[in-house]
Design a protein around this nucleic acid. Structure first.
Lengths: 229, 229
DNA sequence: TCAAAAGTGTTGAGCGTACACCCATGC
DNA sequence: GCATGGGTGTACGCTCAACACTTTTGA
């Protein structure tokens, strides 16, 4: 069975840049291609948009199928519509980026036959198609957005220490921050809930745990306070 | 002649939100539809992406064909991929927004048979499809972006007064600004070139004209100075 | 000479930044 | 008791915001 149209149509795909945070590194999930073109090369998880699903649903489905990830933070990045992106035929792709807690999704890499793996942002393999451009844009977007929207928390466990949070910003923004100033600022925003718990299993004084309070964040936004690191 | 594929494919279109600045208003260009669905309703200029052109080229071509606009500032906004956006069939649209100088494109509205017209942002008609959502998102994007990127100049004549520039920000951001503070700030950024010219044909003291210096802006960015209103 | 808009400085408050030491805990 | 990171305050400079009067020009 085939589907016919009066004019030629591009194929429509989605591709996802999935970021996670290691102890000391920003990581991206990549899938090793097992078919031509670019067989053996690494690529972003993604695939064709089906006719009965929205573009966002397609991104979530592909993420689930290829990496086992569900219910993650997902935001549209950009649509890449150059003519020769794909050597086979015209393919337009809607790119997305996702933020996940590595702890939740440790080694759940390969759900189907293909190999999936986390790569450090400064240890990337050569990528298939124009996926290097997509990844670069996603990284820039993350660096910009993390500074004025509280999306970084998506990369941390629900309960985290202020030092973990500071490291997150240092890793993503690629610069060091002053401990005292960072704490003053983030606590002054009134969006962190101080818990009655501390770290465990550390070989030194245990740090206090905090939780991001989304509700309080929304109230703050309404009051015109704006989140900015 | 028809084109056949193994799986059904969505149609791919582009839609453009074209902003311009009147003396006292932010305007959007709309086209009156002359065919079903939504016949007679106003809609964003746009149309199908051809197989041999990039998505951006399609946006520029449609803009040219439907409104006569060429060489304008154009940036991708978002891709709308809901299933029932178009009652006829599955259509995914890549939305763009454009900024133009109204002076350059005064009444050049209707190039083809359809009526085209500028509408004030607070005097919009009902729109076809989900174009109200697209327009709303474009407006938000403009409001955000104009504050930290020097894109406002795309809406003014090449030579402008500081008062014109201030009004631009007041109209887009929908709040008043302090004259002295505004001038201090914008001049302090070192991206405006003071000309040896003044306004003409005004019934009061003529204001000095300035020009945006893109080169100097890029130098400033390199030095880490960031544009922000 | 009048109307209209151009042009121009100062002050106070709040914010960002730089900076160093003691404390608690596990081994 | 020692190593490791946790936790804390102050002082200075800069930027932002508030605010009003004189000057220029054309009619």
């Amino acid at each position: 069975m085939t589907f016919s149209y009066e004019f030629p149509r591009a194929a429509l795909t989605v591709d996802c840049v999935v970021f996670a945070l290691d102890e000391s590194d920003l990581k991206v999930m990549l899938i090793q291609r097992d078919i031509s073109p670019f067989e053996g090369k690494w690529a972003l998880p993604g695939g064709f948009v089906r006719i009965e699903e929205t573009v966002e649903d397609a991104a979530r489905r592909e993420l689930q199928e290829e990496t086992g990830l569900e219910k993650v933070f997902l935001e549209q990045l950009y649509t890449f519509g150059d003519i020769d992106r794909d050597p086979r035929e015209r393919v337009v792709t809607v790119a997305w980026y996702a933020l996940v807690r590595l702890s939740d999704h440790r080694v759940k890499a390969a759900t189907d036959a293909r190999a999936a793996a986390w790569f450090g942002m400064d240890d990337l393999p050569q990528l298939a198609f124009d996926h290097d451009r997509i990844l670069e844009l996603a990284y820039q977007r993350l660096q910009n957005k993390v500074r004025y929207q509280p999306i970084g928390f998506e990369l941390l466990p629900q309960k985290f220490t202020l030092t973990q949070l500071q490291h997150l910003y240092e890793i993503i923004l690629d610069r060091t921050l002053d401990k005292r100033n960072f704490r003053k600022k983030i606590l002054g925003m009134n969006v962190l809930q101080e818990l009655d718990e501390v770290e465990t299993d550390v070989a030194h004084r245990a740090a206090r745990l905090y939780r991001f309070n989304k509700q309080r964040y929304r109230e703050m936004v309404k009051q015109g306070v704006n989140f900015e690191i």
